[in-house]
Every structure is written in structure tokens, then in C-alpha cells.
Amino acid sequence: MSIKIEKAGLLTTIQDTGRYGYQKDGIIVSGAMDATALRIANLLVDNNENEAAIEVTLVGPKIRFHENHLIAITGADLAPEIDGEQVQMWRPVYVKAGSLLQFKGPVNGSRAYIAISGSIAIPKVMNSYSTYLRAEFGGLNGKALQAGDVIPCKDPATDILALLKKRGLTNSDKAFIEVKWKLAPQLYPAYEENPTIRVVKGTEYELFSESSKSYLWKEKFQITSQSDRMAHRLQGVNLSLQEDTELISSAVTFGTIQVPAQGSPIILLADRQTTGGYPRIAQVITADFSQLAQIQPGKIVRFTEVTLQQAQQLYVKQEQNIEQIKRALDIKRS
């Protein structure tokens, strides 16, 4: 089985939940920018949540399905259509052979995920399917998807037709059939256009000037168009240290907010380097990674502080939501 990319889109890549275990060798984590959306997309089509899926950025690709497939689209609303008809997100969709998936344009958020039941048949590199663009490995030959690419797919883990019956689907002349239910909205991320992002204080927070510290909480920052999978580059008031301090490089992570000497903060994302030497004023909490990854260039972000304990409670809550989704799907499957 396979699907064909007929138009590339802005940046369409194969990702999973990330390449872990090799950061000590300087190998970046990569993976989905909105990992929660990718995990849920996989669960909706009965895949393991860590399977490979397609990440679509702002301007979507055109994808032709050569066989019948069960897919799910999650993440940003980029107005997906199959054969010209709007298709619902956050639920399984049965797509008939020959039909074409495309995206009209961003309504809300930046990145959508397409999971295919059975998943994509590509080899893992260093235990991950994620595309590492700069080092040119992972994904489909280490590259962003291009027009003409054919992506081999595995057979679905479950019998799709049997599944359709169980999920209350009837015959239809349409190019696709949606299930009639969708996930409860409180179980998956909501994306605000100009969000307030929750952070804990960063390792070097106290080294910043008093005014910089107060700007962080009071001011708004714009996500510039120089932002990419590596980082959001912000623009707004400049932040500075009380005095020049040369830091010794150490590890950074998704959501680390670092401030280079020129004063504009940078928020590290999926394709971040493994280590850094800039002062870290704050750290975005994991529960807000989805929201963070989905902010469009040009939009405004503000920051608010939570404690580490609150951050970890919210982390646990997010995982409980995923567990609840799994249980709900198990019930629908049985």
C-alpha cells in the first residue's frame, strides 16, 4: 500500500514522538512539534501512539490515496478537504482509493498531523522515524516530502471494513466516510491565536536585570517570521542580564527560553540543538508545548508563571487525558 505526494506544501515531513537516547552524541530529538496531536492521531487509527505520521506546516500538501485507508487528521485546522469536501478532524476517517486530500489554508494553528492506520513503512534510524533535515536522515530519505514522493504504508493493523461496521458507518457514495463521534474537546489541545504560555523560571532567571524580569511577565512578544522547527524567534522589548556573564554550555530542552546578547528571546522547539550557552530566563511547561508549537508567525505571546509542582500536575493531567482517550477507543473497538 502507498500514498502519493502530488504537491509538497510549505514543509511536510514524517515525524514521530522524537529520537531519544542520542542527545549525548549531539543528535537532536526532532519529532512532532505538537507531539500530543501526533499521538492522538495515531490512537484514532488504532496505531501505537509513537508511530510515524505526517506533519503538515501552514500550507498543506496534496496527497493521493491509492488504496482504501483509515486516517485521522489532528493538530492545527488547516481546512482539510477530500475531493473538494470538508473533512472533520480529531476522528477516524475512512478514505476511499483514488481520493485526494488537500488543505485550503490555515484557520487556526500552524501544524496538522495525518496518521494512517497501519502506519508508514519506512525504516527507523537511531530508533526513530523522525526526519532530521540538516543531517539528512530519518523520515523519507532524510528529506522533506516532495511532489512525486510515494510513501509506502503498512497494511492496517485491524480489518478496516469490520472496524467501520463496529463504528457505526454506513455505505456512502462520498470519497470518504467519517465516524459520527468525535473526541471530547477537553481531551485534546485547544489552540489560541495569541496565547498566554505558562512557564517556570529558568536556570538563569535571577541573573537578569530587574526590568527584564518584570518585562517577561508584563510585556507581549511577537513570533517573527524567522521562526521554524528549531525555534520561535521573538520580538518585543529586549531582555538583558544585570551584568555580562559568560556561561558554560549545558543541555537545553523543548520550550527553553534563552536570551542571546542582542536581547530578543528564542524559544527552543523540536529541532533545537542539544546544548546551549545562552542564559535561560524561563522554561515553557510540557502541558503548553502543543499550544506553543501551534502559534503562527506574526502572532503575539505572553508569559505567566507557574510553580514546578503545578507544571508537573498539569503534565500528569495531560497524560491522564491520553489514557482516557485510549480507554474510550478501546470501548468503541470492543
Binding site: 549525548k24 558554560i248 549545558s250 530542552t253 510540557t286 508537573q312 503534565y315
Partner: peptide
């Protein structure tokens, strides 16, 4: 999950859901 050694630090990444 993994660790990253640097000049003066070892950073250990962990899964709070599993740890807790």
C-alpha cells in the same frame, strides 16, 4: 529517558508520568 553530559553538568531527562 536519557542524559546529556556537558562541561560541568549532567542533565537527566525523565518522564514525570512514569516517575510519579
Amino acid at each position: 529517558i536519557e542524559y546529556v553530559p556537558a562541561f560541568t553538568t549532567v542533565t537527566i531527562y525523565y518522564n514525570p508520568w512514569v516517575i510519579s
